[in-house]
Design a protein around this nucleic acid. Structure first.
Length: 932
DNA sequence: GTACTCACG
DNA sequence: GACGTACGTGAGTACG
């Protein structure tokens, strides 16, 4: 492509500064091995640049490209408004030295590198985009910065490299509610807390868009401000007209700045291999060197191995992912791999099965990895290709050894105490092997290794981890088994394809282990991983496999009764509403309640739909009889569909029991989560719902025993925040909510009323959740100032709580995470965000150490429980956050309760000495309702 | 697939 | 000084 820039040309403008900050914040700190220079942001920047270049090699490839940077922090905007961007934190010390290196990187890629003193990157991008567009070419701005959205239009789009999405005119309208040409008007009104653009106080993007759409433009709006109906808005617009005009100037990008560059100089050029490799070698980016060298068709130079500072060297040697892996067909071949694994003392293992549910899944094959790029797959139960063999689809495919022979060979390896088995989501494979007579151990789990370090930052599934830590995209399982109706089980997958997929899984798992395991130490969560995560794998596996007996007849009878009740309610509702409608549709219900019946109630934000939640209906129930009926219907409907119907489908035909699946790494705080089915939300709060627990039964001759921690989160709060009055109340075994009320309101305990106690209870819970006047007011249905008064009094009476909240928030802001008493880390990446997200993050940060510590305590109890009740005819079945449910032979209930209580009440020790006692309440009965 | 609603701690 | 708010989950249903 040559000649002056014009029609047919395509210019890519990459927002370099945004790239750098994103890289810096998204990646763990990485230093150059030889001298410790921080290079994490450079590494991320280079990876993103390389990815952008590679992804854009298709038909729509750019003919011209440039990376644009900010230069200096003082721009012409500061002359207009000295507070512009004044709220920006200073650049982190680790990032500063990396800035020039990112310029070097850009030049090494042979991409034009643009910056100009006194101008922001945005202005350079604006000027070039306008020029290119006016010359008849097309422009793609690689950025997700909303300030650049004003440039979108004919021939100009944005590309969000993170989300991989194109932002065009429609995308802008979705974000701002107006077209690109009015974006500055909306921004001028709404202001921007990130850039410290003042805007109009009290007006956000929503309101701004509405005003601009109504008046056509900002100028028109300001000129006719006196016509605005809402008095508050009108006054704001009149009072702050100058400030709004200034804001517009601040957000308006300069399309006509004098540039030192010409579009034609931005023509895309192939990078010079020597220069680029040279730069990367200097940076010691081994992985990317290899990839770049491969792409450019040159040999990758070896980066001299300097002595790593510590064992947790970051840039691990990573060979490319091979096209294929080894297909193990014979026992001899398998024996060779097993011998090598045994010899080296570790091996990554993965199983392929016919289902996600381990109770029903059948083993189809096993893969092993010994080193990065070196993995094999042992197919065991693949079916003959159905198309090739129409009449014998049950026949096994060629090239597989007998299942029992393979398992007999694998068993000694998998059970070898001296060989570490590395798995992703080990509980799954552990159960599969267990069902095949193999008790696997010892194990490492990359999912849990990631969770211990990165809870709160991202998910811990293999695809996510591979993408993030290996920059590798895994073969999607859908490519093999399809999706939806056409989905097949893994045994129908042709073996050659399965080899590639399964081999990759084991390979990725091994590489993730190499990458993440050494970092456990650095994050100081090794003990968390080793004492709170890993030991839970076999414990939970055994609980899940034990399952709990559920009586189908009880559920079935209840379903019938619920169906009748729903029918009756539906008839009544139809009568009252005067027409039939789907009560289960919030949309239709909203139309009936608010449009047809004209009940008071507003629309909700995002979708414009009416809110019809229980709290709304509850308020409406005083005005009309319909909402109450709907509430009743909803309750019954929920119980039927979610519980009495759905639970029946989860009864395993083989065991007659329900086997839930616990996810260890599901909840950020360290809590477990229960799925398929969720047995942690079985009703209890209403009498009718509670009866569902009667269907959870003890088999003949056995009893269900339940122990639950009493007020564990409040106790932990009292300990952490050092609230003597609360601690004393717990030590004396007082009713804690009554004691709180007594402290707060000065009411003696013997004169306590249920209502005062109820209010204190709500405050106690509120404190754990990161209280706000608004939230408490809503919960107690009292005026907001009254709620705020309660909170103020609470803090006055228990100043330690306020201190705890302030200290926790400050810690989170400084470190980006909070900790439980046992050292569990919960990352809080949003804590320093501006805007409404900050409130959420703050409350989550306050809650996480409390909820997380309680989660740690019960984990410790569960891990110790098996040994403590060994010898008793008892089994631990379920965990519900602060409750453990057991099944025990009749006659041994008291012994079980005594031992389990001892374990639970002493679970914090010796790691943590709690200054409050932990109490566990016990119950027993023939079903769960009776046992609680 | 997303939004809404509601079950639990 | 306004904004939008209780913390953490999973599942069923409606709807585009």
């Amino acid at each position: 492509m040559s000649g002056a820039f014009g029609k047919g040309h395509h210019l890519h403008l990459i927002d370099g500064s945004a790239f750098i900050f994103r890289a810096f914040h998204a990646l763990p700190p990485l230093t150059r091995k030889s001298d410790g220079l921080p290079v994490g942001a450079v590494s991320g920047f280079v990876n993103m640049l390389w990815k952008t270049v590679q992804d854009n090699k298709g038909a729509d490839a750019p003919t011209h490209a440039a990376v644009v940077f900010d230069k200096g922090s003082i721009t012409f905007r500061n002359e207009m408004y000295d507070l512009y961007k004044a709220n920006r934190d200073e650049m982190p010390a680790d990032l500063r030295p990396q800035i020039p290196l990112t310029r070097d990187a850009t030049r090494a890629f042979n991409i034009a590198c643009l910056e100009q003193e006194g101008f922001e990157a945005d202005d350079i991008i604006a000027t070039l985009a306008c020029k290119a567009r006016d010359a008849g070419g097309r422009v793609t701005i690689v950025s997700s910065d909303k300030d650049l959205m004003q440039l979108v239009g004919d021939g100009v789009v944005m590309f969000d490299a993170m989300k991989n999405t194109v932002i065009d005119r429609e995308g802008v309208e979705a974000k701002f509610g107006v077209g690109p040409e009015r974006v500055v008007d909306v921004q001028a009104l709404a202001g921007d807390s990130v850039d410290n653009v003042p805007g109009a106080p009290g007006i956000g993007i929503k309101t701004a868009a509405q005003l601009i759409n109504e008046y056509g433009s900002l100028e028109e709006l300001l000129a006719r401000a006196t016509e605005v109906k809402q008095p508050k808005r009108r006054q704001t617009l009149i009072d702050h007209a100058d400030q709004i005009r200034l804001s517009k100037k601040l957000v308006q990008l300069d399309c006509g700045m004098a540039l030192d560059y010409d579009l034609d100089t931005l023509e895309v050029k192939e990078p010079d291999a020597e220069t680029l490799i040279g730069f990367l070698t200097e940076m010691e980016f081994r992985t990317i060197i290899r990839r770049v060298a491969q792409e450019l068709g040159v040999d990758a130079p070896a980066v001299p191995e300097t002595a790593p500072v510590a064992a947790e060297a970051e840039a691990i040697e990573q060979p490319p992912f091979p096209e294929d892996y080894t297909w193990i067909r014979t026992e001899d071949e398998l024996a060779t791999w097993i011998a090598r694994a045994t010899d080296q003392g570790y091996v990554a293992v993965d199983t392929e099965t016919t289902a996600l549910n381990e109770m029903r899944a059948l083993l189809v094959g096993v893969s092993l990895a010994l080193a990065p790029g070196e993995a094999c797959y042992i197919p065991l139960a693949h079916k003959q290709n159905a198309e090739a063999d129409l009449f014998a689809t049950d026949a096994l495919a060629e090239g597989q050894m007998p299942m029992e022979r393979a398992l007999a060979l694998l068993k000694p390896l998998l059970e070898d105490e001296s060989v570490l088995k590395i798995l992703q989501n080990a509980k799954y494979d552990y159960k599969i092997f267990k069902r095949n007579g193999i008790e696997m151990g010892p194990m490492d789990d990359t999912m849990l290794i990631s969770y211990a370090q990165h809870a709160g930052l991202h998910g811990h599934g293999m695809d996510t981890l591979a993408e993030r830590y290996l920059t590798h995209t895994c073969i999607p399982i859908k490519d093999l088994i399809g999706s939806g109706k056409a989905q097949v089980t893994f045994d129908k997958v042709p073996v050659d394809k399965a080899v590639r997929y399964a081999g990759e899984d084991a390979d990725v798992t091994l590489r993730l282990h190499e990458r993440l395991k050494p970092q456990l130490h650095r994050s100081r969560v090794t003990t968390v991983y080793e004492t709170l995560e890993r030991p839970l794998i076999p414990v939970l596996a055994r609980m899940e496999m034990a399952g709990i007996a559920v009586d189908r007849n009880t559920l079935s009878r209840m379903s019938g009764a619920f169906a009748q009740k729903m029918g009756a309610l539906e008839a009544e509702i139809r009568e009252i509403a005067g027409e039939g409608f789907n009560v289960g549709s919030p949309k239709q219900l909203g139309d009936i309640l608010f449009d047809k019946l004209g009940l008071p109630g507003g629309k909700k934000g995002k979708t414009g739909a009416y809110g019809t939640g229980a709290d709304v209906l509850e308020d409406l129930a005083t005005e009309h009889e319909l909402p109450r009926k709907v509430l009743d219907w909803r309750q019954v409907s929920k119980l039927k569909s979610t519980y009495t119907d759905a639970l029946q489908d989860h009864i395993d035909p083989a065991t007659g029991r329900v086997h839930t699946c616990y996810s260890i790494a599901g909840a950020n705080t360290g809590r477990l989560a229960s799925t398929d089915p969720n047995l942690q939300n079985i009703p209890i709060r209403t009498e009718e719902g509670r009866r569902i627990r009667e269907a959870f039964v003890a088999p003949e001759g056995k009893t269900l025993v339940s122990l639950d921690y009493s007020q564990i989160e409040l106790r932990i709060l009292a300990h952490i925040a050092g609230i003597d009055a609360l601690k004393q109340a717990f030590k004396e075994g007082q009713d804690i909510h009554a004691a709180t009320a007594s402290e707060m309101f000065g009411v003696p305990l013997d004169q306590m009323t249920p209502d005062i106690r109820r209010q204190a209870k709500a405050i106690n819970f509120g404190v754990i959740y990161g209280i706000s006047g608004f939230g408490l007011a809503r919960n107690l249905r009292i005026p907001r100032d009254e709620a705020q008064g309660f909170i103020d009094r609470y803090f006055e009476r228990f100043p330690g709580i306020k201190d705890y909240m302030a200290e926790t928030t400050a810690f989170a802001k400084e470190h980006g995470y909070v900790q439980t008493l046992f050292g569990r880390r919960i990352n809080t990446p949003e804590i320093n965000a501006k805007g409404p997200g900050a409130g959420f993050a703050k409350r989550a940060a306050i809650n996480a150490p409390i909820q997380g510590t309680a989660a740690d305590v019960i984990r410790r109890a569960m891990i110790r429980m098996e040994a403590a009740i060994a010898g008793l005819p008892a089994t631990m079945l379920l965990q519900v956050h602060d409750e453990l449910l057991f099944e025990v032979d009749q006659g041994h209930e008291d012994e079980l309760i005594a031992r389990a209580r001892e374990v639970m009440e002493s679970a914090a020790a010796p790691a943590v000495h709690l200054t409050v006692p932990l109490d566990a309440d016990a119950g027993q009965g023939v079903n769960w309702a009776a046992a609680h």
